[in-house]
């Protein structure tokens, strides 16, 4: 159920787009209406989620300390692992966002005969994640060739490097293969590692299946099911979408609408799911706070404003009642004037 339902959901999305795009007139809905709707929902959802996070106070200074914090001069400060200034935090965040250092630190507990328990470094997740994320980024940038007219020359260089093996025509891209490989490895990790499988939920599997669906339909469209995949007509539609004058000039194959519909589904799903780690990584208090609790006090922003109230002040306020009740006071009431 945990992986069956998400898999069937993706298959259902494929069928909806496939059958839907065959109905005359529905091409406009799948090619124009859904993409605009999806983009609007993506932007709205993303901003809403980020603002929601921005409104959430951080009550404690909870950075993860992975090295020596700044202390006395003769103790060596680990600037990346326990940042003390904002620029050190930026450096730490950059490495986190660009190279996934948290995943690099991953360890795995194993029991060997003896019995002997070890906590060994396990880099697989980090490698698969790097493979997937960077391939996806390059694929995304490459797709700009369909949205920009005239396109910037740097896309030519990217195309050249990505297709440098010059296998077949159209050229096989390195990132196409790496993207699918990365996704399959991330999926196999959830299936094969019993502990990860135990904690995996439907919303862990769904994005993987959806992204696999997008990658596979894209690859099929480019290399296998070429029939009625007229790239000029597709670019006219894409540029039309980007300039608010969309036109569908040709009869484009269903595989294109399936691909596009799955991308729309991804855009809509993105802000309401774990995929928001794209924005969320910048909001991780364990990463983005200074490790300076010895130098500066972190004030909980939701603390009520309570003024200090000394005993002397307390007595000043209630002296009369205290004297009335017979409680001893440090300072007597002023003598009553006769």
């Amino acid at each position: 159920m945990k992986y069956g339902a998400p898999f069937l959901a993706v298959i259902a999305l494929v069928l909806i787009a496939w059958l839907g795009s065959l109905i005359p007139g529905m091409q406009y809905v799948f090619g124009v209406v859904f993409p605009y709707l999806a983009m609007a929902m993506f932007l709205y959802g993303f901003i809403r989620q980020v603002v929601y996070w921005g409104k959430s106070p951080v009550p404690f200074s909870i950075q993860t300390t992975c090295g020596q914090a700044k202390s006395l001069d003769f103790i060596k400060h680990n600037k990346l692992e326990a940042p003390d200034t904002n620029s050190q935090v930026v450096a730490r965040m950059l490495l986190e966002v660009l190279t996934f250092r948290s995943l690099f630190r991953n360890t795995q507990a194993r029991i060997y005969s003896g019995p002997k328990l070890t906590h060994e470094s396990s880099k697989w997740l980090w490698m698969f994640a790097l493979l997937f994320h960077y391939s996806f980024l390059v694929v995304l940038i490459r797709h700009m060739r369909l949205f920009l007219n005239p396109y910037p020359v740097c896309l030519d260089w990217l195309e050249f490097l990505d297709g440098i093996f010059q296998i077949g025509a159209p050229n096989w891209y390195i990132t196409d293969i790496c993207l699918v490989t990365g996704l399959v490895l991330l999926l196999l990790r959830r299936f094969c590692q019993t502990k990860v499988r135990y904690i995996s939920l439907a919303n862990d599997y769904f994005p993987l299946f959806l992204l696999l669906g997008i990658a596979i339909t894209g690859i099929l469209m480019r290399y296998c099911l070429r029939g009625n995949v007229d790239v000029v007509a597709i670019k006219q539609l894409a540029v039309g979408l980007a300039t608010f004058q969309p036109t569908i000039t040709a009869d484009i194959a269903s595989i294109f609408y399936i691909h596009l519909f799955l991308v729309c589904a991804l855009l809509v799903y993105f802000p309401y799911s774990k995929l928001m780690h794209m924005g969320g990584v910048f909001f991780s208090p364990t990463r983005n706070m200074r490790n300076n609790t010895r130098a500066a006090r972190h004030i909980n922003p939701w603390n009520p404003d309570i003024k200090p109230h000394s005993y002397a002040g307390y007595e000043d306020e209630f002296r009369e009642f205290m004297v009335d009740a017979g409680i001893p006071v440090e300072k007597e009431l002023p003598a009553k004037q006769a």
């Binding site: 993303f46 007219n149 000029v232 006219q236 540029v239 980007a242 300039t243």
Partner: peptide, 16 residues
């Protein structure tokens, strides 16, 4: 995220 929208400047350009 909206790069293609402002890059093209609302002009779809010539069609080949």
């Amino acid at each position: 995220a909206t790069f293609p929208f402002w890059y093209n400047g609302l002009s779809a350009g010539p069609v080949p």
